[in-house]
Each structure stands twice: as C-alpha cells, then as structure tokens.
C-alpha cells in the first residue's frame, strides 16, 4: 500500500450554473497516485465538476485544495503554476484544428519549457508514440479518426509529464480493444510516473480495470452517494442506484 497523501481536496463544493445547482456541498479527497473515477448518470454534472476542478469555472461555494494550496482563492499566477502540473483530456479531444498533431502536443512545451525546438519535436513524437500514434505527427486533426483524436489529446495532456491528469470519458467512442489499450496506458502511466489520475467514465469494464477509488454523483440529491473503490462499491453498494449503475441495471435484491 502506498502512503496516503491527499493531492486534491474538495471542501463543501457547490457546482451550479446560475440557479441550476448540480452538486451541493460535496466533499471528497483524491490521494496522490490514485486513479480516481467520477461516476454518475449522463447530465449529472461530471463534466461540470471537472470544469470546476480544473479552474475553468469557479465553484458556487466551497473550495478546492490542490497539493494543500487553496486553488479556488489563488491568484492567476498561482493558478497557472498549479495548472502547469495538470494535463487535461477533454470529452471531444479539443485538438487545435489548424495545427498538426505534433504541433498540438508541442504547444504546452513551447509555453512552459525552454527546450530547443528539436527537443520539443522529439518529446512531442515520444508522447505521440506512447499513445500509439508514432508516425502521425504531421497529420492534421481532420485527417484522423475520432479515437485517434482522443489519443492525440492524451498525448498533448501528457506533454509536460503532469502530476495530475484529468480525463473526461477517455474511452467513449472507442472500440473495445482500443478502449482496453487506453486503460492499460492509463494504468501504465499511473504506475510509472506516479501521476494522479482523475477520470470521468461510464464504462464499467474500464472503471473496474483502472479505478482505485471512485465517487458516484447522484443528480437527484445533488450529492455524492457512493465513495470508495469500485470493487468495494459493488460488493457493499450503499444504495440501489449504485448497484444498478455498476451492474448495468440489474435490480438489487437484498
């Protein structure tokens, strides 16, 4: 067992769009080295929670600590410094369409490091190779498939060897084998670099394969109704909804 050290702490977090409250006063902690899965029904506010965690949107209430520092109240520079150590894979890939894959992956390196252009290109190619895109560096996003866009987005997220990686539905839209390979990759990266990974996922196989800890967001009560490792949640489901979710709709007989 690794030593448990909190890296992300959400305290009394309320996520809302104006009057539309998605989550109310939730608390959770992500430990360093975790693969932390955020589960919940579609439209339950998982992407929105991720937007709050990555600072794209302020929480309506409460605060987030990252590495013990108050991320919510931090000024722009501190936020930037914290985000420099975070990589994000968006739900749709979010690649810049006017840049090649290598240029996409190189962008954060150009922004934050002082490597020579050659070294940057080499690092970008390395990250692309890690995600199975060796040789695709000169392709434009419009020239590759949806799953490849996801992987290229991942390569870009990995560019700066982040300590925290946020994934929004990494395996959505992938075939079972690619999705399995992506899971393996996520686990390998977590294992080798020790990066903490926060992942939004619906995919049961993937949740059980990679998740070391998980929360279940409930849209009705706007709260976290399950908190623990996926296996643990399946064995001792705190409520019927979670059991149904983790078994694709089987009814829970007590």
């Amino acid at each position: 067992m690794k030593k448990q050290e909190a890296i992300i702490e959400a305290q009394n977090l309320t996520v809302a769009y104006g009057d539309n409250v998605l989550l109310k006063n939730v608390n959770f902690t992500v430990n360093r080295g975790d693969v932390f899965v955020i589960m919940g029904a579609s439209g339950g506010g998982k992407s929105s929670l991720l937007r709050v965690l990555t600072g794209l949107m302020p929480p309506a209430e409460g605060r987030i600590l990252i590495g013990g520092k108050d991320f919510t109240a931090a000024d722009e520079n501190t936020k930037k410094e914290i985000m420099r150590h975070c990589g994000i894979l968006y739900q749709g890939g979010a690649l810049f369409s006017s840049m090649t894959l290598a240029e996409n992956a190189a962008l954060p390196l150009q922004q934050y490091t002082h490597y020579s252009p050659q070294a940057i290109r080499e690092i970008a190619d390395f990250k692309l190779a890690l995600t199975g895109l060796a040789g695709f560096g000169d392709f434009y996003p419009s020239e590759i498939s949806g799953g490849m866009k996801k992987r290229a987005g991942l390569a870009r997220a990995l560019a700066l060897d982040p300590e925290i990686l946020y994934f929004d539905e990494p395996s959505a839209g992938l075939d079972p084998i690619s999705s399995r390979l992506l899971d393996d990759l996520i686990k390998d990266i977590n294992d080798i670099t020790g990066a903490t990974i926060v992942v939004v996922s619906h995919e049961l196989a993937s949740i059980f394969a990679i998740g070391t800890n998980a929360i279940f967001l409930d849209a009705e009560t706007k709260s976290i109704t399950g908190y623990g490792s996926p296996q643990e949640l399946l064995k001792n489901p705190p409520n019927d909804k979670i059991y149904e979710f983790l078994t694709r709709g089987a009814k829970h007989v007590r």
Binding site: F126, L130, A134, T193
Partner: peptide, 17 residues
C-alpha cells in the same frame, strides 16, 4: 522508470501511415 517509458512507447506499433 526511464526504461519502462521507452518500452511503452516502442510497444505500440501502429500501421505506419
């Protein structure tokens, strides 16, 4: 760590475009 990352990158062999 260094070696495992290198192996990982080499392991995935896509068809070369």
């Amino acid at each position: 760590d260094f070696e495992r990352m290198r192996q990982l990158a080499l392991a995935v062999h896509p068809h070369r475009p």
